[in-house]
Design a protein around this nucleic acid. Structure first.
Lengths: 336, 336
DNA sequence: GTGAAAGCGCTAACAC
DNA sequence: GTGTTAGCGCTTTCAC
């Protein structure tokens, strides 16, 4: 920062004291109009900007939010980030990003890295490994140190903090009912998120919808996928073992797109022979052939609401913790 | 930051001076071993972390990089970000993200927002609007204020700074030659990036490859797409006007995937009747049916190299500006 | 109407 | 071996 202009420099050049310059820049009534004008002119010329670090130190607030994202290559999280950035900007907050890459250790490091006064609080979605191994004390530590956390999407009821989620149960419940109403007889669920709470909720929505309906009650068919390598083989085998399958609901879009691919390969006509519903609104849904019907999580709103919630918390540390639920909706495209 | 522990608190509680505590935490040879142990024990108990803002102020460096990304929903940029985050982390740097959303105004605001001592330097890719309207003085201003900039992918020769790019010309040149070698006779280019320098370079690579070859010299066929709405109609019309088309090269993967979709709709068999090559390695390429052959930009390496370059610059402000070229490679999948 | 001084949390040169 | 002090850039209270 070689050429950074400071109040001191301006003061010296104008033959004024630092405090006068500071006040002038704030249009203080104490300062002579002419002086104000002089100061402002030079400040502009020198591109003066109050140093943020100094302000943070002085005010004990950074106006910065720490964001920890499990996977930036996931469209959902990118879209949440878009919402976070937009809303943070509107409120004069900056965002510092850390990526946990779904690892507990990286999540922990990120939390520690930023809890050195870098940020005023956190917005995060829990790493897959953290959730499957049921870690949570690191969150508690951070909260105890005075950093509020807002969790979104992947949350845990072990931690008392603000949360922003969708109703995963309702989302798949409604989607399953949609397939039932279409007259689909054999509806399968492909889940790649079994280790996550949201994955369990999504499975529950599917189950409940079938259970509510006598003719489907005993026709539950769930395929769990645990690794990237499994997608294609697991889905192929689903098709082979269930020739009469005519409806597929998935908990993510890679599963849905892969199901679509397998359906093509096996000569099914979509949506005539089989309907497919994905989860999350991303580019793939629109570009696949045929385009994919999906459950939209309104990711942008999740991000936006998370920032709102964190800022509210920052302004009122003692309010009760809230869990806000963002609506989902089914976007009908060509696979149903 | 209610409970943040400071040196002052520790000093008071231990009946020591602030500087003794500070030195003890740094294992200073001046300090008695026992004291060091006492200090460290309490520091640990109280989760003491030196305040980053205070350090920044003291050292005149933030150990933070400002990153300005045109579009976070673009897989390429997300992947670059992954590389940036990883390399920054390794070097104990944090990253603050701003999104320009391809708007000049937002890019300008982001630059101004962060040039208040929030960051030590910038890594950015130029917003589409900035490039099409040929703005560049805002970059100059920032550099003059002492903030080094590393530009990646979308760069401009109007600004003297470090750059990290791929050889766009060579990438399409090679890809086109690959199609020629396959015996494809009528090869079209679909470009959605005509307003960007990289788009022009990519078109040049295609043109040059055809020109080098007498039987292709006069068979250049370029479709320019200027808006999202155009993709499907423009590509449909390309197919209709050129029934003998048997090879398609694109400058992005939305074009390629759309071309694939149109080919399906029109009853072409891919890759038998027509070959398609996309640009950028993303999820769509692997998930489309058939999976898409693409030019991989090695986005992760671009991000990594950008951070390396910026850190070198920060350590040696007077070195000559460099432009580093990251290799591309053609990933052969099922559409060729 | 302007300026001096204290303090945010930290480090480091310099006492003692 | 430990403590005092100055200063990073800023705001704000309190003099003058």
């Amino acid at each position: 920062m070689i050429n950074k202009t400071t109040l001191k420099q301006l003061a010296k050049e104008l033959n004024l004291s630092i405090s006068t310059v500071s006040k002038a820049l704030k249009n203080s009534y104490e300062i002579n109009e002419k002086t104000i004008a002089r100061v402002k002119a030079l400040a502009k010329k020198r591109h003066y900007r109050p140093n943020r670090m100094a302000l943070s130190l002085k005010n004990s607030q950074t106006k910065t939010i720490g964001v920890i994202i499990p996977n930036i290559l996931n469209y959902f999280f990118s879209k949440v980030l878009l919402g976070i950035e937009d809303e943070a900007n509107k409120n004069d907050y900056q965002i510092i990003i850390c990526l946990s890459n779904n690892k507990y250790k990286k999540e922990l490091q990120s939390l520690e890295l930023l809890s050195d006064g870098s940020v005023d609080g956190f917005i995060l979605s829990i790493a897959r490994e953290t959730q499957s191994k049921k870690h949570s004390s690191h969150f508690k530590d951070i909260i105890q140190q005075g950093y509020p956390i807002v969790m979104f999407d992947r949350v845990t009821n072990k931690i008392k903090c603000d949360k922003v989620i969708i109703d995963d149960f309702e989302a798949t419940f409604n989607a399953t009912n949609y397939l039932i109403k279409q007259g689909r007889k054999k509806i399968a669920l492909i889940s790649s998120l079994t280790d996550l709470n949201i994955g369990k909720q999504r499975a529950n929505g599917y189950k409940k919808a079938l259970e509510n309906n006598t003719s489907y009650k005993n026709k539950k068919l769930i395929v769990n996928i645990h690794s990237k390598a499994e997608y294609e083989t697991a889905i192929s085998s689903l098709f082979e073992k269930n020739k009469n399958i005519d409806g597929i609901l998935t908990t993510d879009n890679v599963s849905a797109t892969t199901a679509l691919k397998v359906a093509h390969q096996k000569g099914y006509s979509v949506p005539k022979d089989i309907a497919i519903i994905g989860f999350a609104d991303d580019k793939i849904s629109r570009l696949s052939y045929p385009s994919l019907t999906t459950i939209d999580q309104n990711a942008f709103d999740i991000g936006k609401k998370s920032v709102e919630t964190l800022i509210e918390r920052l302004n009122n540390k003692s309010a009760e913790f809230k869990t806000k639920v963002i609506e989902t909706n089914l976007i009908i495209r060509e696979t149903t």
